[in-house]
Design a protein around this nucleic acid. Structure first.
Length: 103
RNA sequence: GGAGCGGCCAAGGCGAUCGCCGGCGGGCUGGAAGUCCGCGGGAGGAAAGUCCGGGCACCACAGGGCAAGGGUGCCGGCUAACGGCCGGCGGGGGCGACCCUAGGGAAAGUGCCACAGAAAUUACACCGCCGAUGGGCCCGCGAGGGUCACAGGCAAGGUUGAAAUGGUGCGGUAAGAGCGCACCCGCGACAGCCGGGAAACCGGCGGCGAGGUAAACCCCACCCGGUGCAAGGCAUAUGGGGAGCAUAGCGGGCGGCCCGUCCCGCUUCCCGGUAGCCGCUCGAGGCCGUCGGCAACGGCGGCCCUAGAAGAAUGAUCGUCGCGGGGCGUGGCGGCCGUCGGGGUCGCGCGAUCCGAACAGAACCCGGCUUACCAGGCCGCUCCGGCU
RNA sequence: GGGCGGUUAACUCAGUUGGCUAGAGUGCCACCUUCACACGGUGGAAGUCACAGGUUCAAGUCCUGUACCGCCCA
C-alpha cells in the first residue's frame, strides 16, 4: 500500500487508498508512539474504527484503506474524525459509494 | 474560625441502542472451520518506569569450598525473598502534631585535601616572643651587670583557609606550652568499671585531647550460577550447497536383561519461510470473622473464582440521577448592622443555567519501590485566635 | 515483553585519581588585507554542562530519581 496506494492528506490523517483483492472494504491503522502514550493511541484507534463501522455504506466496495495518524493531531472526539473523512471524500471521489449502490 | 500534620477510602452510578474479545450450552453441517441464538464474564491504583526480590522455564554445575565481579550496611523483628515493611536507637529540622536520614570501620594500610597560608598530618616556624644555658663585645679589682641576637629555646599573639593538636581563668616560666589546677567542650583507640536494656544504645565514675574524605581505593560482616515466556515444548517441511571431524561412542524404538536388530550422523554457512497449538492463568489468591502480637504479620474457621488478547478486546451516542465551582434568582432558615417601618449584608437551603471531573489501558504471574494524578470523602492529632 | 548505551556553545565532539575563569574545530560578529569578493590574518561574543535532589570544603565528574534520544534480542 505504501508503494502502490494513493496518498490523501487531511488535517490530522494521511490516508492510503488502493484497490483491494476482496470485494469488501478493509481498514488498516498506523498510530506511532509520537501520537501519545498507549492510552491515547488506543483512544484514537477506537474513534477511527467507530467511524468506519458506522459509515461503511459511504465507501465504494473493494478498496483497502490505511489510515496514518499524524504526529500533531487534534482528534478528541468522533466529530473530529468525521471532519477528516469529509475532507478525504472531497479529494478521493472514486472512493465515494454511489447513491444507488446497496450498502 | 484560621493554619497545618499523619493515616485510610474511592477512582461517578443506573438505563437504552449500535458494536468489540474470550467462556459455556444449543441450532445449521457427515465432522471440522464458519455462522446464528441464548446465558454469563471482560483493565489499574498505579495496568507505567523496569529500580529490586521471588515463582516458573531452559542451560551449566550436580556435595561443598575458593577466587573474580556485583550488591547490601545502626539494632531487633516480619516475610518465600528483598535494597521492602514494622518497632526501636543515634543524628538533623520544626513552637508543635510530626518529618528527613546510604547511619559499620578513618589509632589496619594506601591515596587525596586545589587556591591561600609558615605549616594540610607521626606537619610546621614567616612575622613574632625569649635568650634562663652556651658564645661575642663593653663596664667592673671582684662578685656581677649591660648589650648583641650567633647557637639555641618557645608556639602565647598575627596572617590564610572548609578545616590548623579544644575554650576561659589562675598558677607557672627567660619566654612559653594541659606543664599543673578549676570549670566548660569533645572523644570512645590506649582502660576500663558500675547501673538500665534482648540489642543498637543511654546514664554515671575514671581516663584521654587523636583534622576531613570510605556515594576514593580498601577492611569487616552478610547475600548473589547464567539467561529470560521473543524462556521453553508440540506440530508443520524429510529444502539446498560447502568444509571439517568420524564410521567409534552416545541417543531413540523393539526386547525383562546381556547379546542382537532397526532408526538418526554432528558442527557451520546460504536460500526459502514469518508463526498454528500448548505454556496462559487457582495463586506466597481475594473477602469476612476470630485469636496472638505495640505493629509489620501470623494461626484458625467460613465464603468466593475475579480479563486472558495476539496490529492486540471495555468504545460511541442518548437519557437520567449524583459530585465540585462561578455568577444569577428566591426571606424558605439563621447570624450581624440599622430602623417607627421599608431595608442592607453574610452563611445555609432550594431553583434554573454555564463550566469542570485527573493520571492513565493488562501482555507469564506474584511481593515491593519509584514516578504521574483534577476534585473529593472519612478518622485521629497539633498550633494560633475568639466565645462560654 | 526483555536487555544495553547516550545527553557539554547554533553544529560535531574533548574534558581520568572531583580543584582555580569548562576547552577544540566548523559556524557567527568586528577589524585588517583586496578596486571588490573568496582565501588568509587579528580580536571577540556565545554554556541553567538535559532536569531535580544528595555526598563533599568543593560536582560536568561520585550516588539516587526523572525526562528525552538511540541500539540489540524471536
Amino acid at each position: 500500500m505504501e508503494r502502490r496506494g494513493r496518498r490523501y492528506p487531511t488535517r490530522d490523517l494521511i490516508v492510503l487508498v488502493g484497490r483491494g483483492a476482496r470485494s469488501w472494504t478493509r481498514l488498516g491503522l498506523t498510530v506511532s508512539h509520537h501520537v501519545g502514550k498507549s492510552h491515547d493511541r488506543n483512544r484514537v484507534k477506537r474513534l477511527i474504527r467507530e467511524y468506519f463501522r458506522t459509515h461503511k455504506m459511504r465507501f465504494a466496495e473493494g478498496f483497502d484503506l490505511v489510515v496514518i495518524v499524524k504526529r500533531q493531531h487534534r482528534l478528541s472526539g468522533l466529530a473530529d474524525v468525521e471532519r477528516n473523512f469529509e475532507q478525504l471524500f472531497r479529494q478521493a471521489r472514486e472512493l465515494v459509494a454511489s447513491e444507488a449502490a446497496p450498502s
